[in-house]
Amino acid sequence: MLYAMMNKVAVFITGLVIVKAQIPFLGSCPDVQTMPDFNLNQFLGKWFESERYFAVFEFGGKCVTAEYNLGDSGAVTILNKQMSSITGLDSSIEGVGNVVSRDDAAKLTINFPSLPYNFDAPYWVLDTDYKNYAVVWSCNDFGIFNTRNAWILARSKNPTLPIIQKAYTALKKNGISRAYFIKTDQKNCPLN
């Protein structure tokens, strides 16, 4: 009986990890600092994914882009696109982002209504110069463990090393390991 209950708990936790984020860690979410004086309007527009933590929802994805625009209601509309490196098929998903508080405009929650499990996920901008790079962080706290996701975004498909190094500096400042990052393939991308 105890084994069956523990098995159900393990399956539930695994499901949460898969749906919410992809890299599990013991303990609570780390304390990270979002960008002070973040300007959402300057952040809007098209970004190319340069690097990311592994995420099931991006498995085999290449040519990944994210486009952010301001919707009529004041919410941020999100359009994420990618191509499967396995099948060559394009896919996209639309979402909505909302600023959590006026005191910290760099903290948003995002939601993708078409997903089978509907939830608000944290989406925090840790650093950006708006013209070249952005570092985005997400962490979900489940008490004894947390799940993390992180992205380095760029305005160009192939950012220069000095631009990526600025993103790495923001990661280091926040104690975020680069060990889990995977470089996103942006070659031969008809979507872009």
Rank of each mutant, 00 (worst) to 15 (best):
R178H: 08
G88A: 07
A66D: 10
I78P: 05
D104Y: 11
I152T: 03
L40M: 15
E51T: 06
P190D: 00
D90L: 13
K131Q: 14
V125G: 00
W137Q: 10
L2S: 08
I13P: 00
D72Y: 09
A66C: 03
C189F: 06
T77L: 12
V9T: 12
A179W: 02
I23M: 05
I164T: 05
F145A: 10
I163E: 14
A10Y: 10
S84Q: 04
T147K: 00
T87G: 10
G71V: 03
I164Y: 11
F119E: 13
W151R: 01
I163S: 11
Y3T: 14
F57T: 06
I182E: 05
K8F: 15
V17A: 11
N41A: 12
G15T: 01
A4R: 13
Y180W: 12
I13W: 12
K107T: 09
G61K: 04
V9P: 05
V96W: 00
V96D: 01
Y133Q: 03
E94W: 09
A179M: 09
N98T: 15
N118V: 08
T14H: 13
G97N: 04
G95D: 04
L191T: 13
C63E: 00
K173W: 03
T128Y: 01
V136L: 02
K157E: 12
V9W: 08
P24Q: 01
G143V: 02
I86F: 15
S92P: 04
A55Q: 08
V99P: 03
I182P: 01
F145R: 05
W151I: 02
Q186C: 07
